[in-house]
Amino acid sequence: MTQTDRDTFHVTELYLLAAAFDAEALFGLPDKKIYQLQGEEPWSQAHKRLIQKGIFTEEGKLTKSGAVIIKTLYEYFFSQKYVRINNLMFAFREKQAEEVIILVETYEKTYKLYVMAKPLVLKLLSEKVPLLNREPAEGEKNFLRRELPDEEKAAINELGVTNDIANIELFHPRVKPQIASNPNYYQQWLVLSKDAKLIMIDTTEKHYYHASQYWFMKVLFDALDFPYRQKEGVR
């Protein structure tokens, strides 16, 4: 088993680990019932893989590395907010925490779990989301966002799928009502570039904006609770 295999988890493995704190659901993962309906086999295989990864001993006892993973999963479960940026799901400890928890969905539909310092998160996103590295146009210094006219909205809707699009979703799972039309519970921004313009679409409110790079970064920083200024004494 490679190191990559050890750091990658199937849905059933994560649910087995989450059973340590009686969690029946993990935000962003498929429903646990899908696998429960398949009988004992998926769970026995998941337990075997967790032993191979050193999460449990052969006798079924939790190892130190397993305890660290369960603690991280526990903090992920109790996050008051989740932010999805493309295939990266972010969970949060407290607002002023220096680190975030990241659940990454792979192309194989498995998951990786990380704890990462916020400065490294920004570096990660700059690699994963090319629009973050975009050089703002000269005119963007004079505005934050402007609503697009109807003809430009229509042109945007006709665009095909592009790899450069950024999908930013915000969830507050303990806010009621839990419906997509409640912006306190759910928000989604689609961000793309067209004809050198940065376009941001608020999908819940159906608003289309010509946005400045500054506004894009502000939405991102606010979503991830990134500080705008350095703390005193930090250079």
Score class of each variant (00 low, 15 high):
residue 1 M to Q: 13
residue 4 T to I: 14
residue 6 R to S: 04
residue 9 F to A: 00
residue 14 L to C: 00
residue 16 L to F: 08
residue 17 L to M: 07
residue 21 F to Y: 08
residue 22 D to T: 04
residue 23 A to W: 02
residue 31 D to T: 06
residue 31 D to Y: 07
residue 31 D to E: 12
residue 32 K to E: 12
residue 32 K to F: 06
residue 36 Q to D: 10
residue 41 E to N: 10
residue 46 A to D: 08
residue 50 L to H: 00
residue 51 I to D: 05
residue 52 Q to M: 11
residue 52 Q to E: 14
residue 53 K to I: 03
residue 56 F to C: 02
residue 59 E to N: 14
residue 60 G to A: 00
residue 61 K to A: 10
residue 62 L to R: 10
residue 63 T to L: 02
residue 64 K to W: 10
residue 67 A to F: 04
residue 77 F to I: 06
residue 79 S to G: 05
residue 79 S to V: 01
residue 80 Q to T: 13
residue 82 Y to P: 15
residue 82 Y to D: 05
residue 83 V to I: 03
residue 86 N to V: 11
residue 88 L to H: 12
residue 94 E to C: 09
residue 94 E to N: 12
residue 101 I to V: 11
residue 102 I to C: 05
residue 105 E to A: 03
residue 117 A to Y: 11
residue 120 L to F: 13
residue 121 V to T: 04
residue 125 L to A: 01
residue 127 E to S: 14
residue 130 P to R: 03
residue 131 L to R: 03
residue 131 L to N: 02
residue 133 N to R: 07
residue 137 A to F: 10
residue 143 F to E: 09
residue 144 L to R: 10
residue 145 R to G: 00
residue 146 R to P: 08
residue 148 L to D: 02
residue 151 E to T: 09
residue 155 A to V: 07
residue 155 A to L: 07
residue 159 L to E: 15
residue 161 V to N: 15
residue 162 T to I: 11
residue 164 D to W: 08
residue 166 A to E: 06
residue 167 N to P: 10
residue 169 E to D: 14
residue 170 L to A: 04
residue 176 K to Q: 13
residue 176 K to L: 14
residue 177 P to A: 01
residue 178 Q to I: 00
residue 180 A to M: 14
residue 181 S to R: 15
residue 181 S to F: 10
residue 185 Y to N: 12
residue 189 W to E: 00
residue 189 W to L: 01
residue 190 L to M: 00
residue 191 V to T: 02
residue 192 L to I: 06
residue 194 K to I: 09
residue 195 D to W: 02
residue 197 K to S: 04
residue 201 I to H: 06
residue 210 H to G: 07
residue 210 H to I: 08
residue 214 Y to H: 11
residue 218 K to E: 04
residue 219 V to G: 01
residue 220 L to N: 01
residue 222 D to E: 13
residue 223 A to C: 07
residue 225 D to V: 03
residue 226 F to K: 01
residue 226 F to G: 00
residue 226 F to N: 05
residue 227 P to A: 03
residue 227 P to V: 04
residue 227 P to H: 03
residue 229 R to W: 08
residue 230 Q to T: 09
residue 233 G to Y: 06
residue 234 V to C: 12
